[in-house]
Design a binder for these strands. Structure first.
Ligand SMILES: [Mg+2]
Length: 264
DNA sequence: GCGACAG
DNA sequence: ATCTTGTCGC
């Protein structure tokens, strides 16, 4: 092997080893944060019903977060937080931040790329004691539906100490679950709710697939993020699905892309 | 070795 | 994630 080849090979070895040791750190972080995860309802509000019961706080402010990326420079991203009024389904708060990302997208490690800017937006709103601070946050990315049961929605939920729900637009294959199998089962299942629990080969329930709008056959994938049960997560997501993607996430996605277009 | 791989 | 316009249909 000549010197040039040897040099490039050792650079690449170094780079690979660095990546892999960073991933080992990340595995430990995920494992550690997972110890704080709560997968049952843990909030003081309740879902809106048609009865009006006076004393209890009702869920009204639902947040959504997403990132968009520059087509020219893939390290430039815009993170956006929106809050919707559940009654009107209108955006009552919007904030975004354009940042340079230094961490690549790696399946299973999305949170290390996307969570920091989103946590900053949440923190800024909380520190201002904003009256629309969300009672629940919907995240564009999975929660428990993740190779180690700790996706972006769990990560944000634990670090912000906020109830979160994960919503994926594509299935991250885990525990024998595949996109095609799930679609077939969802079609075959005679569920009037258009919902299918995602039960893996191990028997574990990772979340649920749901055909969320009349307009599309392609399901969305709902999973528990933090401080909420799967049943509650499904009920709330369903309330916000005017289109396939739940409105808080859809608005964060749209406004994030708009902001990047008008500001870079 | 092969296929899979949230955003 | 992004590259990309129109087109068909309710
Ligand atoms: Mg996204």
């Amino acid at each position: 092997m000549n010197d040039a080849k040897e040099a490039s090979s050792s650079i690449s070895n170094f780079s690979n080893e660095f990546q892999s040791s960073q991933q080992m750190d990340w595995l430990r972080v995920q494992d550690s944060l997972k110890g704080k995860l709560i997968t049952e309802d843990d909030f003081k509000w309740r879902l809106p019903t048609r009865e009006k019961e006076g004393s209890c706080e009702i869920l009204k402010y639902v947040g959504g977060v997403d990132l968009s990326f520059s087509k020219d420079d893939s390290s430039i991203a815009c993170g956006t937080l929106v809050v919707l009024d559940l009654t009107t389904q209108k955006v009552v708060y919007e904030d975004s931040s354009i940042v340079r990302l230094h961490i690549p997208y790696l399946p299973g490690f999305l949170a290390f790329r996307e969570a920091p800017v989103l946590l900053e937006l949440l923190d800024k709103m909380k520190n201002n004691a904003h009256c629309f601070y969300p009672q629940l946050l919907m995240v564009d990315g999975n929660g428990l539906l993740h190779p180690r049961g700790f996706g972006l929605a769990c990560h944000i939920g634990v670090l912000a100490d906020l109830p979160t729900v994960g919503v994926g637009k594509n299935l991250h294959h885990v525990d024998g679950l595949t996109q095609s199998t799930v679609r077939e089962l969802l079609q075959a299942a005679d569920s009037p709710e258009h919902i299918l629990p995602l039960i893996g080969d191990s028997g574990c329930i990772w979340g649920a697939a749901m055909r969320s709008s009349e307009g599309s056959l392609k399901p969305i994938f709902i999973s528990v993020g933090h401080r909420i049960s799967l049943a509650s997560a499904i009920a709330i997501v369903r309330m916000t699905c005017k289109f396939r993607v739940p409105e808080p996430i859809r608005q964060a996605d749209i406004r994030s892309r708009e902001r990047l277009r008008n500001n870079q």
